[in-house]
Simulated scan of single mutants.
Amino acid sequence: MAEGTGPRVVVPGDRFPLPDSGKVVLGPGLTTQQSSHGSEGVVTHGGILRQKGEATFWVDIATHNPQTAEGDQVLGIIIGNAGEGFLVDIGGASNALLPGLAFEGATRRNRPRLNPGDLVLARLKVANRDMDPELTCVTSGGKSAGMGHLEGGLLREISLGLCRRLRGKNCRVLTELGSRKKFELCVGMNGRMWLKTEAPMDAVLLANAIEASELMSDKQVTKLVNRISSGWS
């Protein structure tokens, strides 16, 4: 995988040559083996092979199965009440509990009114095998920091690799789209993305572009955004 080439889909057992000199860094989904041609990278988990610089490689694991941990932000769908709180679908094996007081400024007399189907951005407060997940919509300092009820917008399920890419720094597709169109975006580490624009159809176009960018190089992303934005006023 030479410098400058775009990411590509790989499966376990795929191999690629590694640089002959210098320090090589292999991230998740990869190991190394010696062959008659020198050192080779060997794929151990299917996904998207990515490269940074000349000697850093990793695989974005192509899965939709949530692999969340305590502290992760998730996008949840309210499915009903649970005592003084709410039962929330976060895409895992168990539904999560969101206490009614786990919102900024909430009191027993002043709690948010959420209905089945409503979407919330929340943080996993409890996440272990022995207990059902518990959510909160406040930071350790009691502030919402953008968490809570998300009104309107478009919800999509995306791969966890794309989730990490969108939440990382200097994401090319978000930079390119943000320079041309105003939108709100929330990405949960449970494989969900929420996007809101002034015109609902624009949200569909932007979401499609974001999903399509997963297998593209930065140059390809720029061309894609230029093409879809040419018709915007």
Rank of each mutant, 00 (worst) to 15 (best):
A199W: 10
L124M: 07
L87R: 15
K143W: 11
S140N: 10
G85N: 04
Q73K: 11
L205E: 13
K223F: 11
K125P: 00
A102Q: 05
F16V: 00
G191L: 03
S140I: 02
K223M: 09
L98F: 07
A209E: 07
D202W: 09
E214G: 09
G13W: 10
R50G: 08
C137T: 08
V42D: 04
S179V: 00
L135F: 08
S159G: 12
K125E: 11
A102S: 12
E151Y: 02
D132G: 07
A82I: 04
V173S: 05
N115R: 13
N208W: 01
T68G: 04
L215D: 07
P112L: 08
G91T: 08
D132T: 05
A55Y: 06
W194G: 03
G168F: 07
S159T: 15
G152Y: 06
S21H: 15
S230I: 02
F183H: 15
G161K: 05
R109K: 14
A212C: 13
W232G: 01
V43P: 05
L215C: 00
G6C: 09
G80N: 07
S21T: 15
G92Q: 04
Q51M: 06
H149S: 00
P66E: 01
K23Q: 10
S21Q: 13
N110Q: 13
F57K: 12
P28E: 14
A93F: 08
G153W: 02
M189W: 01
L206Y: 05
F57D: 09
I79A: 07
L185H: 13
G71D: 01
A145W: 08
G92P: 00
H45R: 15
T5P: 00
W232A: 02
G27R: 12
L224T: 04
M216D: 01
I228G: 08
A199R: 15
G29P: 07
R123K: 12
R123Y: 02
F183G: 00
A145D: 13
K181P: 03
N170G: 03
V225I: 10
N65Y: 11
G142H: 12
L119H: 10
V225Y: 07
Q51G: 09
G92C: 01
D118C: 01
D130S: 00
I79S: 12
V74H: 06
M201V: 12
R164E: 12
L154P: 04
E184G: 01
P28A: 10
N128E: 11
V25R: 15
L154M: 14
E157N: 13
S179T: 05
L121M: 08
G38T: 05
A207V: 10
G41S: 06
D14Q: 11
D20L: 12
V11T: 11
L224R: 12
L75N: 05
L174M: 06
G92T: 05
A82G: 03
L30P: 04
V42S: 05
N128P: 06
